[in-house]
C-alpha cells in the first residue's frame, strides 16, 4: 500500500498544520466562518452593498465569490485534490473552469435579452392596453 502524503499548509503556506486530522478541523472552522459571514450578510443586507456592479448587486458578487472560495477548500482539502498530481488536477478542474462560465455567459445573456424583448419588443401586439 502506497503511503499517503498530505500537503499540510493552506492559505499559500500562511497556516501550517501538524497532522492531516488537524488540517481537516482547521478547514472546517474556516468554512463555518465563511458560511456565517454569508448568512449575516444575507440577513443584514447592508444598503451600501445593494448597488449594482457589472449587472449584479455587490452583495451577490460577494456571495458568489465566497461560494467559490468554499468550493475551492472542499475540493482541495476534503477531496484531496491538493495531494494529487498536477495533471490530474487539471483534468478535473479545467473542463469545469472552461465549460461552466461559457454556459453561464450564453444563457444569462440570452435570458436578459428575452427579458428586454418581452418588455419592449411586443408592445404593438398587446391589443388589450389600447
Amino acid at each position: 500500500m502506497a503511503k499517503h502524503e498530505h500537503k499540510l499548509e493552506i492559505f499559500r503556506g500562511y497556516l501550517k498544520f501538524k497532522s492531516n486530522v488537524q488540517k481537516i478541523w482547521g478547514v472546517l472552522i474556516f468554512l463555518s466562518i465563511v458560511t456565517a459571514i454569508e448568512v449575516a450578510l444575507g440577513i443584514l443586507k447592508p444598503p451600501i452593498l445593494m448597488n449594482y456592479f457589472l449587472g449584479l448587486k455587490l452583495i451577490n458578487w460577494i456571495f458568489i465569490i465566497l461560494t467559490i472560495v468554499k468550493a475551492y477548500y472542499i475540493t482541495w482539502d476534503f477531496m484531496h485534490v491538493r495531494d494529487e498530481k498536477p495533471f490530474l488536477k487539471n483534468t478535473i478542474i479545467l473542463p469545469l473552469l472552461i465549460l461552466i462560465p461559457f454556459l453561464l455567459f450564453i444563457l444569462l445573456w440570452e435570458g436578459s435579452y428575452i427579458f428586454d424583448v418581452m418588455l419592449d419588443g411586443l408592445k404593438e401586439w398587446d391589443f388589450d392596453i389600447y
Binding site: L104, L107, L108, E110, G111, S112, I114, F115, M118
Partner: peptide, 11 residues
C-alpha cells in the same frame, strides 16, 4: 444555469 436563465428572463 437554467434557473439563472429563467430568473434573468423574469428579473
Amino acid at each position: 444555469v437554467a434557473y439563472g436563465f429563467s430568473r434573468f428572463k423574469n428579473i
